[in-house]
Design a protein around this nucleic acid. Structure first.
Lengths: 203, 203
DNA sequence: CCGCCAGATTGATCTCGGTCAAGGATTCAC
DNA sequence: GTGAATCCTTGACCGAGATCAATCTGGCGG
């Protein structure tokens, strides 16, 4: 069936506006979905974690590029084959529908953030979201939100996710550290010291 | 089967965070999907036109409020019944999956707009989008994008869609009129005089 | 026809976040 | 271990868009 493939950090898997030739399942690692303007501005429009689905079934072109954030292993299918297989297996289509609906909900919540939230609110929301997403990343049972974790994003990528500049992201992180809300032991490491303060900031 | 229902302009059909009790199909009219913050900021996260699907099947709660923008007729189903019916009819689930994937694509394109575009770019993109969406609104064959049309939105609603304030929206409209790019014969009427200028502005 | 009211426009001012420009700090190659 | 590239932080300044505050317009009921 699907071919296993490894993608190293920074390597693209699908290009924006490409013919939609393949779909994939994430086995391990994290990937970003992005769209860009002609003049190089980038917006991250989705993040794929293990078990997430990637690509655009039943469509001619892909609306977003997919690039690995960390080294990743994925299971790739030719789109044609996948489409045919899916139509013959309603259970698969149902599963896909549920995932797509959930992703749409998450995407809509993110629109609220992009359109109406201030920089401090964006950063706080982001950290709380990461804390939850990265918690049940492994296969272990519900452990609740993580208190400390390692971001799969550089500062620039956080900016591209939140619709901010790298400088604003950096300043907000510095402020949260100064206020004792978080500790930042390493470039990408976050430890949440005061979760309720973050929740208040997130609004 | 589904119950026909009419909803007058401004009237809500579903409340944010409500138990997801019903789903519906739009027969006629236009409705907005919105999310709001505690302090009253609003973001429109989707717009439903005739033949569009509304609601959250296979989910416990609804992530967005649905409010009619114009008088509308919808075909409403109890979510439980709909879920059961859908699981028994793979063709329906397939159709729903295709629509949901298309909606996700559109939503992601809108994230790019919210996160990375300037006010002039937002307005230009919005007008071009409306021009296309309102064209094939009736059931007639592809007539191409409309040159003139009536927005189903007030200025405030345009602002909520684009992540701007009403004043900024108004100023941008005035500018486009002054530059001879559009004519604005009525409060909600738009006539595109220079489509290529709009396309250039949209980026 | 007139007055009212919601929605839209316009103007003055302010502020948040962007831009531009130096430094620091990590990480990697050799 | 040392140099270099990359990423991050910090500072000074600027400007797009928000905010505050009047008008203005047009649709509607009387």
């Amino acid at each position: 069936m699907g071919r296993r493939r490894t993608v190293s950090a920074g390597e693209p898997l699908i290009w924006e506006d490409d013919d939609s030739l393949l779909v994939a399942n994430v086995i391990e690692g994290v990937l970003k979905l992005t769209t860009s303007t002609a003049d190089g501005r980038e917006q991250i429009v989705g993040v794929a974690y293990p078990s997430d689905f990637i690509g655009r079934p039943f469509g001619q072109t892909s609306a977003a590029s997919v690039v690995a954030l960390t080294d990743a292993r994925v299971c790739v299918f030719a789109r044609n084959d996948f489409d045919r297989f899916a139509r013959e297996h309603p259970e698969l289509e149902h599963k896909l529908l549920e995932r797509t609906l959930a992703e749409l909900d998450r995407t809509r919540a993110w629109m609220m953030l992009l359109g109406r939230k201030s920089a401090p609110e964006k950063i706080a929301t982001f950290l709380l979201d990461m804390s939850e997403r990265l918690a049940d990343n492994g296969c272990m049972a519900h452990t609740g939100p993580a208190r400390q974790f390692t971001l799969p994003f550089s500062r620039q990528q956080v900016a591209d996710l939140l619709g901010l500049t790298i400088e604003t992201v950096s300043r907000q992180f510095t402020k949260l550290k100064a206020d004792g809300v978080v500790a930042l032991p390493g470039r990408r490491d976050v430890e949440i010291l005061d979760r309720s303060a973050l929740q208040a900031l997130a609004g």
